[in-house]
């Protein structure tokens, strides 16, 4: 993303990248405005009991969000930075790997879409295998097997032992 445009544009871009946390302020502002809008356009019926109606809390929360968005913006412009969270498997020295995140989100949505037509065992196995693949696992002998066993066992435990119904799909109809 470097080397294009005038130095001024490049400078602006790097300023924006350094202050990307302002995006959080914009989101907070948007959610706050939405909450306030929803509360203010609410038709309060006569059923309201007591002096505090259903609008009070949303108005307070919405106003709070606007205030926090402003405070956070001030903090960021003054050089404050939210500290990214560390962890055992987290390496913050390298830039974020967006490809993996998008791939995982895609696999998750695909599994969600397939859970009703294919049933839980098949969709769940696809979710596990797909996620492991997205994360870099390439054992084509082992991965699908683990995925299938995990998904089937989970299905049986939830559906038959715990009594939490999951859709079996055509596959379980055959078995």
């Amino acid at each position: 993303m470097s080397g294009t445009g005038t130095p001024a544009a490049a400078g602006r871009r790097s300023w924006l990248r350094e202050h990307s946390e302002l995006g959080v302020c914009v989101l907070l502002l948007a959610v706050g405005a939405l909450t306030l809008f929803d509360a203010l356009t609410m038709h309060v019926e006569i059923t309201q009991r007591g002096p505090v109606g259903p609008r009070t809390m949303p108005i307070a929360v919405g106003a709070g969000l606007l205030a926090v968005a402003a405070l956070l913006a001030v903090d960021v412009l003054r050089g404050g930075r939210g500290e990214a969270e560390g962890g055992e498997d987290v390496d913050l020295s390298e830039p974020a790997d967006w490809r993996t995140v998008l791939l995982l989100a895609g696999v998750f949505l695909a599994a969600a879409a397939l859970i009703e037509p294919l049933g839980f065992p098949a969709a769940g196995a696809l979710l596990f295998w797909g996620a492991a693949y997205a994360l870099g696992s390439r054992r084509f002998d082992r991965d699908p097997l683990i995925a299938a066993v995990l998904s089937l066992v989970t299905y049986v435990v939830f559906n038959d032992l715990l009594g939490v119904p999951l859709p079996g799909g055509p596959l379980m109809g055959v078995l």
Partner: peptide
């Protein structure tokens, strides 16, 4: 292997959310 660990977390998260009401 970390791939299995985090794939498993996503898997069980999906099970949990779906079990709430059976809604996609």
């Amino acid at each position: 292997p970390r791939q299995y660990l985090y794939a498993g977390i996503l898997f069980f998260a999906a099970v949990g959310a779906y079990a709430v009401g059976g809604e996609v």
